[in-house]
Amino acid sequence: MKFRTAFDQHRAVVVLAVCVVFSLVTMTFSSTNVVVRPREFGLTVVSAFQSVFTGFGRFIASTINSVAELRELQADYDLLVEQVRRYEGLENDIFELRSEVESLRELLGFSQELQYDNIPAQIIGKDPGNLFGAITINRGSLHGVRTDMPVVAVQGGRQGLVGRVQRAGLTASTVVPLTDRSFYVASRLQRSRYEGLVSGTGAGSETISMRHVDKNARDNIAYGESVITSGLGSLYPRGIHIGTVEGIQARPYETSLELVVRPLVEFAVLEYVFVIRTHG
């Protein structure tokens, strides 16, 4: 009885303690495999809602664009505006469809051209905060996606590294982008062939860095030179474009160079990606 009265009096504090302890315990174990399964299950469930919200958002955005377009047309035409608008609407639809078809053909072409077996996927969600920059894609273990598989995208006719799969749910996966501080990939300068280690500089940053480049390479590195994966280590196949050299930092007290690299992939406009099957 006394216990119950005490509990009622401090219910909020007790619940707080339970929630805090639960959070701390899951944080402690989330680096191991202890909570992997419930998390993957949760990702699968949440991704379904994300798909719905993304679809809804795209529908709203396209509707708003259409309305704005119609308003512009209304100012230009008089009596036959209704008919012309209909035709223009149709023309626009055809144009949209054509560009979509071309875009999909291009993607399909690249998908077939990629020298690695790949799984095309669509981005259905991004990190809800501003701190991690995670990407959620609509392909999971059911489609063959596995943890640590590299993810690439095609932009401007070139294939660039996006990141790696951190977690694969049943029908959706979370991708760590190469801008994340915990992302590392063995890399090489495409022309001068010097090696280094590319790592992210934090979500939101427009550049990444390539460290541990031989200091003697300074005179041989050109601005704009491509950085590619070196293939060292088993995670990333060799030859995938990462970005281009935008700056060279040579500190006198360091034995190696640090290069500022602009990623090839522009994350803000990324819609489709390819997950490369490297194992399993």
Binding site: S23, T26, M27, S31, G129, F132, A134, R167, S182
Partner: peptide, 14 residues
């Protein structure tokens, strides 16, 4: 939120 990010599970919850 934790399920949708690469954050350790429990970070946002806490």
């Amino acid at each position: 939120e934790d399920l949708m990010t690469t954050a350790p599970l429990g970070l946002h919850a806490l």
